[in-house]
């Protein structure tokens, strides 16, 4: 049966979207579809529909162990060409205003700045989730950082006040609750501020009393998944 009504084009697109997802199109047709999808939300929905349905076939791919050297080559391709680590806080550390500032003063400044940036637009009220703040420091360590956590967005914002990891090293951030194993929140980028969006499972565990800690690790982070280097700063989160 043939029907060539106003739906004809959409039907053709529906089939073309399925062909596209299956990978049946020639290189040229595939490229043309890719370009069309970018500008055609209805077509993009058709593609998303088929991707979602066909993903049921994914179980049909058997697991095959890749050669042991594969990951080293991936790491080399990704990281070997990168320039050596910059001093994390070179620029920031040179700002005299920060260097001498008392922690309390800095904290207020960060809060005033951070909250004004974070506050959602008035048209989208959110339940008043209590923001948390932590001042991270340790005796005998130059490293001092401030962390501000917005639970409504799962966003953790860090501002470095002083300290740098040194060549070939990195700061790694951990969440510690009571006697549980530290959970890595990631290796801190080489920048004076960092914004980390925590997965909801982790974000739920960051509450008043949780401890945030920074350990000194090899570049790229702890090789074991647990802190291996000294803790250079830590602090408990408190409600603002």
């Amino acid at each position: 049966m043939t029907r060539t009504d106003e739906h004809g084009r959409e039907d053709d697109d529906g089939v073309a979207a399925a062909e596209y997802v299956l990978g049946l199109l020639s290189a040229d047709d595939h490229a043309a579809m890719t370009a069309r999808i970018a500008n055609d939300p209805a077509l993009a929905r058709q593609v998303a529909y088929w991707r979602s349905r066909f993903s049921a076939f994914d179980e049909g791919f058997a697991e095959v162990a890749p050669p042991p050297a594969a990951f080293r080559q991936i790491e080399r391709r990704l990281f070997a060409a990168r320039p050596g680590p910059r001093r994390l806080l070179g620029l920031w550390g040179s700002l005299a205003a920060w260097r001498g500032a008392a922690a309390g003063f800095a904290l207020l400044a960060i809060l005033a700045f951070g909250l004004s940036v974070w506050r959602p637009a008035p048209t989208t009220p959110v339940p008043a989730a209590t923001a948390l703040v932590a001042s991270l420091a340790a005796q005998g360590s130059e490293v001092r950082m401030l962390a501000l956590f917005d639970p409504s967005r799962g966003e953790l914002r860090l501002t470095a006040l002083s300290g740098h990891p040194g060549a070939g090293k990195a700061f790694q951030l951990w969440l510690i609750n009571a006697h549980n194993q530290p959970i890595s929140l990631g290796v801190l980028p080489e920048a004076p501020t960092a914004s980390i969006t925590l997965p909801s499972a982790i974000s739920a565990g960051l509450t008043a009393g949780s401890v945030l800690a920074i350990s000194l690790e090899p570049e790229g982070g702890s090789p074991t998944g647990a802190p291996t280097g000294p803790v250079v700063a830590s602090g408990a989160a408190t409600a603002v």
Binding site: F61, V64, A70, F71, G221
Partner: peptide, 17 residues
Amino acid sequence: LGDRVAFRQLYERTSAK
């Protein structure tokens, strides 16, 4: 976030698939 440890764990858990 650029966490290479997590990247390696992701690789270990998914590379065979």
